[in-house]
Simulated assay, not measured.
Amino acid sequence: MESNRYNKGIEVLQQMVSEERLNATVKQMEKFSPDMARLIVEFPYGSLYSRPGLDLKQRSLLTIAAMLASGAAAQLDFHIEAALNAGLTPNEIVEAVMHCVSYAGFPKALDAMFVVMKVFNERGIQYEER
């Protein structure tokens, strides 16, 4: 399973999520489907996130918007944590979700906001609207 893109992907993920979150996602998937585990590391993180041109904050912001718009709320907690670790502020994350209301709709934005609230609560983040 080891490849240059896989190793790059793991390096990026280690910057973005906790070891616990990484293990809960990648290591769990390795037990069930090693090929899928390799793909979720190599492609988005080893091939895309590691490219020059955008920093991790910008990529995280784009990922949140894309996941929200596609209705992928089940994966959003991983990416909210990654966005915080990449340097996005709680206010930037909330504003990104609010900005998507007119493009993705209220149901998807509300689902995403509940995920944001859950992650903030888990991390002890007190959000105050500005």
Rank of each mutant, 00 (worst) to 15 (best):
M67P: 03
I80Y: 04
A96L: 09
A104Q: 01
K57N: 06
M98T: 06
H79Q: 10
G53I: 03
I80K: 04
Q58W: 00
V101L: 14
G71N: 04
L88M: 14
V94A: 10
L84V: 12
C100T: 11
G87Q: 08
K57D: 09
P90W: 08
G53W: 11
L56G: 03
A96H: 01
L68M: 11
H79I: 05
A72Y: 00
A74C: 08
T63L: 05
L84F: 11
L56Y: 15
I80F: 03
I64D: 00
A82M: 08
L68T: 12
T89E: 12
S102R: 10
T89K: 09
S60D: 09
I64T: 01
P52W: 14
A65V: 08
A86I: 02
G105S: 04
L61W: 07
G105W: 00
L54P: 02
A96Y: 00
S50P: 08
A83D: 06
V94P: 00
K57S: 12
Q75S: 13
A73I: 03
R59D: 02
E95K: 13
V97K: 00
E95P: 08
M98N: 13
G53D: 08
P52H: 15
P90D: 10
V101N: 10
R51Q: 15
A65F: 04
G87P: 07
S60M: 08
A74G: 08
R59V: 06
I80L: 04
L76V: 07
D77Y: 04
E92T: 12
V94Q: 10
H99T: 02
L62D: 00
L88W: 06
S50I: 10
E81R: 09
L62P: 01
L76D: 02
A65W: 01
V97A: 11
F78K: 07
A86H: 07
G87D: 11
A82G: 15
P52F: 15
A96R: 06
A72E: 02
T89S: 15
L88F: 11
L68G: 01
L54N: 05
L61Y: 08
M98A: 12
K57W: 07
L88G: 01
V101E: 07
L61E: 10
S50E: 13
A83R: 06
H79E: 03
K57V: 05
G71I: 02
G71C: 05
L88K: 03
M67I: 05
D77H: 14
M98F: 13
P52Y: 14
T63V: 13
Y103I: 12
S50L: 09
A74R: 09
A73G: 06
L62F: 01
G87Y: 03
E81H: 13
T89H: 07
Q58A: 15
S70N: 10
P52R: 15
V97W: 00
G105P: 03
P90F: 09
M98E: 11
V101Y: 13
A74Q: 11
L62S: 03
I64Y: 01
K57H: 07
Q58R: 12
T89G: 07
A65I: 09
Q58D: 12
M67S: 04
L62V: 08
L56N: 14
P52T: 15
F78M: 12
L76A: 05
I64C: 01
L61D: 05
L68F: 02
L84R: 02
G71D: 01
K57A: 12
R59G: 04
R59N: 06
L62W: 00
S70K: 10
G105Q: 00
A73H: 07
L88V: 10
E92D: 13
